[in-house]
Amino acid sequence: MRKIAIASVILALCGGTFYVVSAAEKAAEPAKEAAPKAPIECFESRKGASEITQKELKPGWPNVKCSPTTGAALWYGDPFDGTVPMGKMPQLDIPEGKAVVKPRSEKLALMPLCGVSCHNGVGPKFTPPTLPKDKKPAPVPTMAAMVPDLANLQHGRGRIWCLDCHHTTQRNKLVDHYGDPVSFDQPQLLCGKCHGDKLRDWRDGIHGKRIGEFVSTGKKRWFTCTECHNPHNVQDGARNRGFVQLQPEPSPQLPRGMANADHEKLHPIPH
């Protein structure tokens, strides 16, 4: 009995010493610092529309988390990061600052050049503007090289052409019903010309996407038309069900002992 007691006392002492040692080791650990990594960039709704670069808003709190497999944005730390006020929308009465959008104009690399270098509103073609009669865009090699989608415009099934959407003289602007210029950040003013039903649903939050505060009086970031739809190939023939195909995120874990998911495909259709 006494032997056991002595042994246990020794054991306890050893344990205590070990605990102290391990605690000291633990304290030394956080001294290491993470090396700077290459910037992670991810896309939101569609590739090429609004890429976000990951950054830390505060320590341990990124503005966005990106999927390591597909490069898609998976989580927003701050939904209003890098947004500007949406501006006036007809039939949409939102208090100032409650509706914001992510500006696309700064992402469009050619934007500042469009209006000054080529389509600057001066020159023989513009005074007065002489427009072709058949609404078939003349293939300008420079233009086709810069915007590859133009070679095969998939919008309106041949009924519309460039200047139905782009302003005749101010080429870094879009055009609305009455020929007035519309910013690239407010494409809904233009798209609603034909897609009125979708515009109505979008205004009420049924079509499209809004993030931020869900209550109807809350601040929201609105996704505008072109953040999800590519206006130059909305009806691309290679698509299924109206959407550009994209890589899905990884599938869930298989049950224990199952090598693949072929069992899901083996069930006959019960009729």
């Binding site: 939101e44 709704s45 569609r46 898609a72 944005a73 998976l74 989580w75 927003y76 939904p79 939050g205 049924i206 079509h207 499209g208 996407k209 809004r210 993030i211 931020g212 505060e213 869900f214 209550v215 109807s216 809350g218 996704f223 999800c228 959407f243 994209l246």
Partner: peptide, 23 residues
């Protein structure tokens, strides 16, 4: 705190909707 759930915020096609049924 009135923020949309995470799944609503990332849906790339805007299929997910969230709101107050009493409003």
């Amino acid at each position: 705190h009135n923020r949309y759930p995470a799944c609503v915020e990332v849906c790339p096609v805007g299929a997910r909707k969230f709101g107050n049924l009493l409003d």
